[in-house]
Design a binder for these strands. Sequence first.
RNA 1: GCCGGAGUGGCGGAAUGGCAGACGCGGCGGACUCAAAAUCCGCUGUCCCUGGCGGACUUGAGGGUUCGAGUCCCUCCUCCGGUACCA
Length: 819
Amino acid sequence: MDRYDFEKLQRKWKPVWASMGLYRTGTDPDREPFYCLDYFPYPSGAGLSVGHCKNYIPTDVISRKKRMDGYNVLHPMGWDAFGQPAEEYAIKTGTHPSEVTRINTDTYRRQMKLIETSYDWEREINSSDPDYYRWTQYFFILLFDRGLAYQRENDQMWCPSCRIVLSNEEAAGGICWRCNGQVTRKKLTQWFFRITDYADRLLEDLEELDWPEGIKAMQRNWIGKSTGAEVDFAVRNPETGEEYRLPVYTTRLDTIYGATFCVLAPEHPDLERMVTSKQRDRVLEYASAARSRSDLERAAAAEREKTGVFTGCSAVNPFNGEEIPLYVADYVLAGYGTSAIMAVPAHDERDHAFASKYGIPIVEVIAPGGVPQGVSESATVADGQLLNSGRFDGMDSAEARIGMARYAEEMGFGRPDTRYRIRDWLVSRQRYWGAPIPVIHCEKCGAVPDRNLPVLLPEMEDFEPDDSGRSPLARVEEWVSTSCPVCGGPARRDTDTMAGFVCSSWYFLRFASPREDDRPFDPEAVRYWLPVDLYVGGAEHAVMHLIYARFWTKVMYDAGMLDFTEPFAVLKNQGMILGADGQKMSKSKGNVVTPDEMVEKYGVDALRLYILFMGPFEAELEWSEEGIAGTYRFLKRVWTVFTETAGAVTGAEDPDLMAELRYQTARTLKKVTEDIDGFAFNTAVAALMEFVNFLSSSRERAGKAGSLWRESLRRLLVIMAPMTPFMSEELWHRMGFEGDTVFHQPWPYWEEEDLVLDTVEVVVQVRGRIRGRMTVSPEASEDEVRRRALQLDRIVEILDGAEPRRVIVVPGKLVNIIP
RNA sequence: GCCGGAGUGGCGGAAUGGCAGACGCGGCGGACUCAAAAUCCGCUGUCCCUGGCGGACUUGAGGGUUCGAGUCCCUCCUCCGGUACCA
């Protein structure tokens, strides 16, 4: 008998499965499709750690089981290959980003093959491949044609020493994250997608999705729908006597009688007109100082103390005609509502802080539960009954909001309004390594899409950004200079590239027909495979990728290209694997564990099994090398049970053993089947362990189970196969079971009758405390069980002749006696 | 602050309102061995009784519903994740 040699099994079966084409996507149109998709990975230079396995191994188990269940399974893999890290690395090392990408994807692919994930590699895609990004560009034009892509000038964070545009996060505190230099703002023209047009649909359609509640909540939050009203205040300039209409947005119209000042955002477009000459310099200085700071910095400063400047103008409250001062202050955000607010210090904490600092009156107009709370110290934000509110006194907040909006509408100075927090999606990047925006700018015709796709990314040696704030592509004159597709006149190409999230907004469609070369996808294939049945990845893309992909799907649906409106029917997030020290795995902490080293020591099957067993799929868990050693020991035990009992001599049959074996087998099949389907892999593995423990402890009597023993082993191999492919395949052939591979076996099911035992143990409780046990037939009547329980010596002793007041019998489980 | 999730042995965790702690790790004891590794067998929540049999306690804290609560309801505490001047 030879020992369990995982290395030998891996060497033996990998080529066999490869030549069989075991993982090729099914084509039989009569079979039910099942599309099991992992998040589109960005191939980083670090390669895969065991943490990534927490994503890829469970989806692999599901895919393998679904194939054995008779489904056609689409389980593909590809690369979200465009992006800044590859470009940074390229600049640093002088390697071209395409070369960096090729090296990284080779590593990822090798590691994924190492752990034997069953991807159909014939469908591999790469978003930086022109065959792919020409269709990304095609969809850009689709959005452009539908009025959903537009250009707008926008303030961007800019680091003059690094000569790069920074995101708000990268410019925290007004300091560049890389060089610690001072960040400035630069006005740049950027491309946006009009995702705000889809805000309501993105919100409403969340209802139908089988996604984690937390992710749905984050999306709702991100979309941030609020209902309120827009009200026009009249701004008066006391110097000129001029009047301006100033619309403000509020969700608390019920508090408007408490408005004691109004505030403009420093970015308010009409700020210059709503300021007196006396205040002008101070106001403009404040506004420009505020604008030069990052949002983060502003928020942090305003957290400590709110600041603002009086404009010299006043605003008239249309409800009561009161004239109140108008301020500019950076606690009011540009880009939300109307960039101007009415401030009600009595009922809003921020306004309260501002009013207290500048000595502005505070007027209480809401009394929660009819009782005024007093507002000199802090604001009262709860709803309540209105007071000091003229004709609306005594109403409660909710009814007042409706009534006052109606009144405002009748009077013509206001209207009900709905606002969203979500902003249009900024998609242009002044970067080399991305899909070029397929637009040509012509003096005569304006921005015109270039439909001659792909617009190839030009080859560049030096793609480092310069201080112009423009993309490096702007320097390739022969590429930029072109002719207008409409009028044929001289024109220039748009030099921006698209953000990586654009590429990943449609890749799930490409997998349905990845080699289609005259259209982005074959509609027939998409109709068959999509939507994705199971989508799995980390929780970090909760809003960005998932909301963008949902948006694009809806746009394509509107364009008649798809017959569904949601791309991912079921979504699951795997938990992260932390290092053995409880910290996030990272190179700098030196706590990274790679699949390579684990496979080397314990083999692919042990790694796969431990990843599944270490805890719940969604849970964040610490890596433990003792843990994987445990699953490795388990596999050796499996090996021993099979090799020791394979040729067990059939002797006199033992009916008790056979009954027990029948029961244990059925119980295991049921548990493992239901647990895999329910994503409870850890308990599925536990059930396998229990079963193997049982087999192991019975192995000396194996021959007494007749042919049943062999049949139980056969079924065990089939249900283990998705988790431990090498062990299962090897033992399948050693045992001489039929068929070319264990993976072509149908999934085994169980007989319900095998789950019924001859006798069951029933617990006897008195007042909920266990006082005895007895063995009864599962068919025993309630009366019989009750009678027998009351006859137990221990029970008779406790009752001491007393008549039980009540006896509860739970068939097959317990008896509870209440004396 | 708000939203989402979670608190169970020494550790990871398991439990349709019905025997809490499955399975694994770690630990202890034993077998095998010259010895070690590997393997195999047994024990392993806490406390009490000399002890088998037994008894009490125990699922973050406190209340409640129930014959019976880790599980359902209320109040609170702690931790993790997200988000934060969105008017």
